[in-house]
Simulated scan of single mutants.
Amino acid sequence: MSFFHSRVLAISRSVSLTIASSLLLVDLAVILFGVFMRYLAGGAPIWTDELARFLIIGSVLLGAGAVWVEGGHMRVALIERLLPGQLCRLLNLYQWLLTLIIAVGAAIFSYRYAMSVSMFTSQGLGISRTIPMLSVPIGFALLAWHALWHGPAPLKTLTEDPA
Rank of each mutant, 00 (worst) to 15 (best):
L97M: 12
M115D: 14
E70F: 03
E80Q: 10
V69L: 04
L98A: 09
W47Q: 12
Y39L: 11
G34D: 11
G63C: 05
I108T: 09
V35Q: 07
G72P: 00
M37N: 12
G43N: 13
F36W: 15
C88Q: 14
I31D: 07
Y111E: 04
L87S: 06
R112W: 06
I79E: 03
W68L: 11
G58M: 07
L83N: 05
G71E: 03
V104T: 09
V117T: 08
P84I: 04
S59K: 04
L83M: 09
D49R: 12
L91T: 08
G65I: 05
L55Y: 03
G72D: 02
G42H: 01
Y39N: 15
L98P: 08
L62F: 05
V35L: 09
G72F: 05
E50A: 10
I57M: 04
Q86M: 08
L55C: 08
L62C: 10
H73R: 06
V67N: 04
C88M: 08
W47E: 04
Y113P: 01
P45A: 14
L90Q: 11
A107F: 09
I57R: 01
M37F: 13
P45Y: 11
G63R: 02
I79C: 00
Q86R: 13
S59V: 03
R53E: 12
Q95G: 00
G43F: 00
V35H: 05
A52D: 06
S59G: 13
M37C: 07
L87R: 09
G85Q: 09
I101G: 02
I31Q: 08
V67R: 06
L40W: 15
V104A: 02
L90M: 11
L82Y: 10
L91V: 06
Q86C: 00
A106H: 08
I57C: 02
F54W: 12
L98D: 02
P45S: 13
Y94I: 15
Y39M: 06
R89S: 08
M115Q: 14
S59H: 07
V76Y: 01
G42S: 06
S116G: 07
